[in-house]
Design a protein around this nucleic acid. Structure first.
Lengths: 207, 207
DNA sequence: CACCAAGGTGCAGACACTGCAAACTTGCAG
DNA sequence: CTGCAAGTTTGCAGTGTCTGCACCTTGGTG
């Protein structure tokens, strides 16, 4: 049959749960994009998703999480990916390739990101949580880099590389999530890293 | 007289207001550093500061703000400072010098920052709000850079420079706010910017 | 001294979020 | 197909954040 492989082990129970989850995050994203996150209550979201308010909190700890859908495993995944890059690669290169792999693997829904950015634009403080699932992930990236370089965990260098990489990632997705003229995400990200590797020269300085 | 200029126009009323404000933020910072921000209620803070709960909200919109004391003018201040830098300076240099000026002017209390970092370490998502008063300020920096370079406001380059500068600033203050071995803030910041300007070479690559 | 504006306070109320226990659904074995 | 065990949904009570409003107190001013 055409049934996806996941369906073999997935019963009615798990399917419903997954449906409820996406119904909730869809409702949250749509409503927030329409009226702005402040003018959406959890009751609104639950009602549109067709479940009780209490159930909402069984799936997401807060309104924000329903909109952003943080990836809890991303931190550890990033960690192992960075440690598995070839030894000879410079740190920034390793991080760049790791991120390109990641966005290549995870199929990112452009339309969804456009909506999400509409929300984030009204709440700039969500920016960091939105892209790398928060500052904690960046921390783990910094730790992985420190380990890779045999440096103490609180050394300036790995932290700066991680923070700069996070900056590049945020800028790339922000640009890519613009309604008009959406370029290829991998290209924008590569461009941002290229600029970082060149020391951020002024546009007039580059031929 | 030795009386500061501000005291001339400041009556009892304004003095009390200022005292209440610092009493509240002191109480918030101390309590949060002791027990962690989650285990501190606004009532606790108000009680220690000797005012009513309602009064707390007349001064700060939230617990977090009392601990972080965001600087609302920072965005516009940064903007004019960046636009006033000499024309010939590369963007990253202009931002570096601007930030060095800023931390030189504002007298930053080291002890207070150490406490604040204890809180932030338990709530990494506060990191951005803590240092540049949030992502909105970084946005304004990006806008100022775009204007300076005659680029569209949503161009990749100014956004990336602003984000990278924010990263450097965060890393510098994080390092400086460590209880042990607190180096000079300006030095750490300069070092971070130097690394950025060099394209973040691996430590082994630098002689 | 008398008035006024500004700050402090209490109260009611909206909303976010959590723990608990009851009701219900699904998966599975007998 | 029947019934039990496990997982899910839900209501409810309770805590805590935060806001608008009305009242009161007090410093500044003429």
């Amino acid at each position: 049959m055409a049934t996806p492989a996941t369906a073999r082990t997935e019963g009615l129970r798990d399917r419903k749960k997954r449906e409820t989850r996406t119904a909730l995050s869809d409702a949250a994203l749509d409503l927030a994009a329409e009226r702005g996150l402040d003018h959406v209550t959890v009751d609104d979201i639950a009602e549109r998703a067709g479940v009780s308010t209490r159930t909402f909190f069984n799936y997401f700890p807060s309104k924000e999480d329903a909109v952003l859908i943080p990836d809890d495993d991303l931190g550890t995944r990033i960690r192992t990916m960075v440690l598995n890059r070839p030894r000879h690669e410079p740190p920034l290169t390793a991080v760049r390739e790791m991120l390109l792999d990641e966005i290549g693997t995870a199929d990112v829904d452009h339309h969804r990101w456009v909506l999400r950015m509409q929300v984030v634009r009204q709440h700039p403080d969500l920016l960091n949580r939105a892209f790398l699932s928060g500052a904690a992930t960046e921390q783990q990236l910094a730790n992985a880099l420190a380990e890779r370089l045999d440096l103490p965990a609180d050394h300036t260098y790995p932290r700066l590389v991680a923070a700069a990489a996070g900056a590049a990632f945020r800028v790339a997705i922000t640009r890519w999530s613009t309604p008009t003229d959406p370029p290829v995400l991998a290209d924008v990200l590569s461009e941002a890293f290229h600029l970082l590797e060149r020391g951020l020269p002024a546009p007039t300085e580059q031929p």
